[in-house]
Write a protein that binds this DNA or RNA. Structure first.
Length: 535
RNA sequence: GAGCUCGUAGCUCAGUAGGUAGAGCAACGCCCUUUUAAGGCGUGGGUCCUGGGUUCGAAUCCCAGCGAGCUCACCA
């Protein structure tokens, strides 16, 4: 618990102070305090009330809070109390609280919790203040507070000791309050549209519904291996088979992947399914949903993200192939035609010349500080990989998809829906009726990363079985993220899944967008950290 | 997994032609009855992330490790 002699000594000193406080007739750890107002209510009620009016009213209040600043001046003093992310100042003078009360005041430390009764007034400098008549001791901070002006700045400490971050850095608290509002807004949106909120297994015998490596665990009594879910998808669709036409679930998914500013091994996903809807209906719904949540949370659809302004009410829609053509980099030579994007051999040929063009452009950039240098390097590596790897074993659809990720995704800052995905990378989506190579699927991107993924659900059990078998083949050839066979899911489909649209939305990423946080760790209360001192 | 940057007092940070550490806040003592990053006087507090190495001498230079941030890769 103690990180130093300093802390150990401080703790001992605070224990002595606690004993002194008890001698004054106060409980060291009382279990209740009846406040008449929260500090927020004091602020909203009297923030603008003039000094003369306060004097005339002489409103008496009882409040509670944590001491965030304390300024003693002989036989009087001030303290700033914080509660619910709001602060108010109290003024304590010996002739008002008595000798015992003032003795207690002098035993208070930064971080202590106290209750105070008194009347509202304004100081000489105009600050709304409580003129204290009684102080009640509530709890002691036995450890030192972070620096009062800068707060807790060390990112590692902020993540590991979020309990300190939350009271020391108001901005941090506000992010999580907003996150709660995001969740409320999402639920309200779906509740109002007749969706049923459900909870499906997070421990699954077979981790399906997405392309990812799962975490493995074990049930002792049943002697059974289980996987933490990578998606709720297959269970939710079983529910639609069961007649729950509109369902949604908000909960954690677990994927055994690396961490980054956009990935945490456990993350919160919203998934929803709607019978009788297709992906076009979901595009419409998605735009409405994002606008709705933004307005509920921020009161506006305009957000600042990563130094840029974007409007969540202004969307563009492109097919994946259109997007590749649209965002094709000038340095990669001529754009591929639609025909080229539909032909593996022609595409490989074009990528070959694109690699050459990119290499020439990259070689021409002399200054390593040039931002083009890094961009071209990344682009070249990505296209090169697509070109060579795809040449040997990947199907056309996979090649197109990877090309999209490399060339297009980082550019999708304004809200964009990308639709018509290759069938090969979409084992659970329904194919377009006139084009079996593509499925009725879209993903949407904001701020340069993917937020959600949706499609018309494949409901033909035979086709689903075939898709799973194709995935098994990819798995056999080394893709350990390819989907596994789920016989029970196929059986469920065989009972008849109505035409259904389904979608998943990354709640953490949506929250990042709405709070302006560039790292997913800033919107997760306790992000996964490497082990340090396992006490 | 790779590259870059960082790790000095409880907190925020200084400290390179290598000479065994400083400031502010916090703490402790004293003064101060409208202050607000309160102020004044005084005091205490550091395995300079860890382990090696170079050197007469390392917070500083080198190597390895641990942890963090960012970028990239993988993914959502």
């Amino acid at each position: 618990m103690f990180e130093s002699e300093f802390e150990k000594n401080l703790f001992a000193l605070r224990k002595e102070k606690l004993a002194e406080i008890e001698k004054l007739g106060q409980a060291a750890y009382p279990n209740q305090y009846k406040a008449t107002h929260t500090i927020g209510e004091i602020r909203s009620g009297w923030n603008e009330t003039a000094a003369e009016a306060l004097e005339a009213e002489r409103t008496t209040v009882a409040i509670a809070g944590r001491i965030m600043a304390i300024r003693a001046q002989g036989k009087a003093g001030f303290a700033t109390l914080q509660q619910g992310g709001e602060r108010v100042q109290i003024y304590v003078r010996q002739d008002a609280v008595g000798e015992q009360g003032f003795a207690l005041y002098k035993l208070l430390d930064l971080g202590d919790h106290i209750g105070a009764t008194g009347y509202l007034f304004r100081t000489r400098t105009g600050e709304l203040t409580i003129h204290v008549e009684t102080i009640t001791f509530l709890a002691k901070a036995m450890l030192a507070m972070p620096e009062k002006f800068h707060g807790l700045a060390d990112m590692e400490l902020r993540y590991r000791q979020r309990y300190v971050d939350l009271f020391a850095n108001i901005e941090s608290r506000e992010v999580f309050v907003k996150r709660a509002k995001v969740l409320q807004a999402l639920r309200k949106f779906f509740d109002e549209r007749g969706y049923l909120e459900v909870e499906t297994p997070m421990m699954q015998p077979l981790a399906g519904g997405a392309a990812a490596r799962p975490f493995k665990t074990h049930h002792n009594a049943l002697d059974m291996d289980l996987y933490l879910r990578i998606a709720p998808e297959l269970y939710l669709k079983r529910l639609v088979v069961g007649g729950l036409d509109r369902v949604y679930e908000i909960n954690r998914n677990f994927r055994n992947e690396g961490v980054s500013t956009q990935h945490n091994p456990e993350f919160t996903m919203l998934e929803f399914y709607q019978a009788y809807a297709n992906y076009h209906d979901l595009m419409q719904l998605t735009e409405e949903l994002i606008m709705y949540v933004a307005r509920q949370v921020n009161g506006t659809t305009v957000v600042e993200f990563n130094g840029r302004t974007l409007d969540l009410a202004k969307w563009q829609r492109l097919t994946m192939r259109e997007a590749i053509r649209h965002y094709w980099p000038a340095e990669a030579g001529g754009k591929p035609t639609m025909q080229v994007l539909d032909d593996a051999v022609k595409l490989q040929k074009q990528l070959h010349s694109a690699v050459e063009a990119l290499e020439a452009a990259y070689g021409a950039v002399k200054d390593a500080d040039d931002e083009r240098h890094a961009r071209l390097k990344t682009l070249l590596a990505a296209v090169n990989e697509v070109y060579y790897e795809s040449l040997k074993n990947a199907p056309l659809g996979k090649m197109v998809y990877h090309l999209f990720e490399a060339m297009v995704e980082p550019n999708l800052f304004d809200p964009t829906i990308i639709y018509e995905y290759p069938t090969e990378v979409s084992p659970l989506s329904k194919a377009k009726p006139d084009d079996p190579a593509h499925v009725e699927r879209f993903e949407f991107f904001i701020g340069g990363f993917e937020i959600g993924n949706a499609f018309s659900e494949l409901n033909d059990p035979e086709e689903q079985k075939k898709r799973f078998e194709d995935q098994l083949a990819q798995r056999a050839s080394g893709d350990d993220e390819a989907h596994q066979m789920d016989e029970d899911y196929v059986r469920a489909l065989a009972y008849g899944l109505p035409p259904t649209g389904g979608e998943g939305i990354g709640v953490d990423r949506l929250t990042m967008l709405l709070t302006g946080c560039r790292s997913i760790r800033d919107v997760i209360l306790f992000p996964l950290m490497r082990g340090k001192s396992a006490e």
